[in-house]
Amino acid sequence: MDKTKKKRRRLIFRTLVLAVLVGLVVFAIIGNLSQDDAVVAVGDKAPNFELVQFGTNGERKSLKDFRGKGVMLNFWATYCKPCEEEMPYMQELYPEYKEKGVEIVGVNLDSTKLVVNRFIDKYNLTFTNLHDKNGQVMDLYGISPIPSTFFIDENGNVVDKVIGPLTLEKLEEHLKEIQPEA
């Protein structure tokens, strides 16, 4: 048999096997690094959900209801101190950005309404707050530490995601990002 041909075949075979092995190793590394990656990532469509709104008589709101507006989706709880710290900033910017077509939607993870209602009264929160009593939406969005905030544009795409509390300046920057063009 032709020797060079044989050598070529051997080279191709070895290259193929090595390529497959390298591919598997890379897959393992990526898998290892992205283990705690979010279920909902930047660029994804924000999955829809439906929850009872605070301050109403059991009325339900879904994310779809806000289509056409930019949505800041904030996961919080009363017992979470950093959440509490960023609440006044959200309330401060809310009236202005509501005018500009941005809604702030809080998803609360407490278990009792009383605690949350008292909290809302305390900080005079006027933006929409929804009760995720069983943590279903939290599971849907793959949230572990709170506060966690998603910035969603008017088409329902996640533009940005922030884990941890926001300062007033940062918050405003992010709100500008999702302000619909008009």
Partner: peptide, 16 residues
């Protein structure tokens, strides 16, 4: 629900 003193402020550690 899970009371503790945070400085001189009563707070809850969790919702449980």
């Amino acid at each position: 629900p899970e009371y503790y003193m945070d400085g001189n402020q009563p707070r809850s550690k969790s919702k449980f």
